[in-house]
Each structure stands twice: as C-alpha cells, then as structure tokens.
C-alpha cells in the first residue's frame, strides 16, 4: 500500500478511490475522525491496534471497508450491538461505530437508545445527510418536512427525529453536533469523545449532493455546501431546546452533553 497522504497509514489505500459520490460529506467526516484518532495515537493514549471500527449498512457504513483498523461491516442497523460485544470482551479497545441516519436512527434506533441508556463505553458517529442515499433517495426519519423523496412523492408529512434531544435525554457522557462545513469541529468533538469513558454520540450534519441535493434543488456539491454553511451556527454551550433541525433555518452546532460519569465497563469490571 502506498503511503502518500498524511492519513494513508490509517487507510486501506489499495481500495481507494472510495465509492462515495463527488462532493459527498462522508469522506470529510472520516478524514476528521482519522485526524482525531491520529492525535490520540501521537499523544500516546492508545495505538492503532487498539482501535476497532464497526458499521452497519449504508453509504456511511462503507467507511469501515477503507479503514486500516480491526473493522467490521455488518448488517443494517446492528453495528451497535456488535460493538458492545467487542467492548465487553476487550475493554481496552477503542470501539467506534460509524453509520448514517438510516442505519443508526431508523433501523438501529432501538440499539442507539439502549446503549446510550447503559452509558456503554463506545463512540457512535452518525453522519446525517437527511436521506437514504445508497438505495437512491428515500425518506429518512431525519428528512425535513415537505421534502419530496422517491417514497414521499407528495412531500414528507413526518416531523424529523431530533437525535441530539433523544440521546441527551439518556444517561450519556457526551453528545455533540458537528457539520461537514466545519471539519475542525468534527475532529475536536471526536477527539473529546474518545477521551472519556461511557457513551459518546456525535451527529455530523452532512451533504449528499447526488440524492438529497437533487431533491431540494442543490445538485451541485459546492452550492449545497454553501447552503448548509449559511444555516450553521456554532455555540459554545448550546441548549437542547435549540437543537431541532428545520431546513432553511438555523442548525446549532456544539457540545450538548459533556460529562465524565463512570461508564458501563467500569461498573462491570470495577476500575
């Protein structure tokens, strides 16, 4: 494998270029995640062999195919239980679950809320592009109201799920929202999440120009990127009440929950 890019040592470079469409935000998230991991590794907190990444099915879930860690690309929605199995047997592993909003919030929603309730010592990174990308543009639980998708051809009638509010209501240590328009924040939040025990959840608002962009009239990646950027607002201490996402209005980034309670593993094994 050729090592050229500074992050290539964390990638299975023989598999690049990856499958994601031009301008897809997932690559931005993965790149930021790898820099966060690299920082931890260079600071001596853990090694590359200690990192395990797990994903289910979907565009975002394909990330694990390209990562040069112990990785698992399992079935739709079930990355979190697989990750818990890993973590309780090998507690020294840094277990990271990567998935899209369909994988984590729709089919995997039950596992998300119960692992958060347990304060299970894993980090879940949910890339939210507000649509089902891999299957070609169906409505997601995160799709804004009124948006036309291939399965809501008369407009989406359902109010979108606010994952920040949901996960924050549970016994978690860390909940943050980032956006692909601000990659340094993704990196910082993932770094912070990996610095602690217990459950950590990071929602990254992403862009899907090919599918979501097409539905809402922003087919060009740069235009969609700039549209999203215009809605983004960063707050040092955001309130949960302002975490709802309404397309066209403000999307508030920040660390919504930031605690250091004992995680499940410490309760299970003692310190």
């Amino acid at each position: 494998m050729d090592i050229i890019h500074p992050l290539d040592r964390y990638l299975r470079t023989d598999r690049l270029p990856h499958i994601w469409c031009p301008g897809c935000g997932i690559g931005i998230v993965i790149s930021a995640m790898l820099r966060a991991i690299d920082r931890h590794i260079s600071e001596g907190h853990f090694t590359q062999d200690d990192v395990a990444t797990v994903s289910g099915i979907g565009c975002t879930a394909r990330a694990t195919l390209y990562l040069n860690f112990d990785s698992a690309h399992v079935i739709h929605g079930r990355a979190i239980p697989f990750a818990i199995g890993l973590k309780v047997i090998k507690p020294n592993l840094k277990v990271i679950v990567i998935g899209g909003d369909g994988d984590i919030a729709a089919i995997g929603g039950n596992h998300l809320l119960h692992s958060a309730r347990r304060n299970m010592d894993i980090t879940v990174i949910m890339v939210n592009n507000m649509v089902y990308g891999m299957t070609g543009g169906q409505v997601a639980p995160t799709t804004p109201m009124k948006v036309y998708t291939t399965t809501t051809p008369y407009g989406n009638l359902e109010y979108p799920l606010n994952l920040i509010k949901l996960v924050s209501s549970l016994n978690t240590n860390y909940v943050a929202r980032a956006s692909v328009t601000h990659p340094h924040l993704i990196e910082r939040y993932i770094y912070n999440a990996l610095s602690r025990d217990g459950f950590s959840f990071i929602e990254v608002i992403s862009i899907c120009p090919e599918v979501f962009g097409r539905h809402i009239g922003f087919r060009n990646p740069v235009e969609l990127f700039n549209k999203l950027k215009s809605m983004i607002k960063f707050k040092a201490k955001p309130s949960i009440d302002e975490s709802d996402i309404v397309w066209g209005k403000e999307i508030v980034l920040g660390e919504y929950v930031n605690e250091y309670k004992s995680g499940f593993i410490k309760l299970l094994y003692g310190s």
């Binding site: 050229i4 990638l11 690049l16 994601w20 690559g27 931005i28 790149s31 930021a32 340094h184 990196e187």
Partner: peptide, 11 residues
C-alpha cells in the same frame, strides 16, 4: 483544502 477534501486527494 486538506480538511474539506472527502477523497483524501489533497494535502
């Protein structure tokens, strides 16, 4: 540019 590139193509 390096941080925003989704394709690990520029550094």
């Amino acid at each position: 540019c390096e941080y925003i590139c989704p394709d690990f193509a520029i550094y």
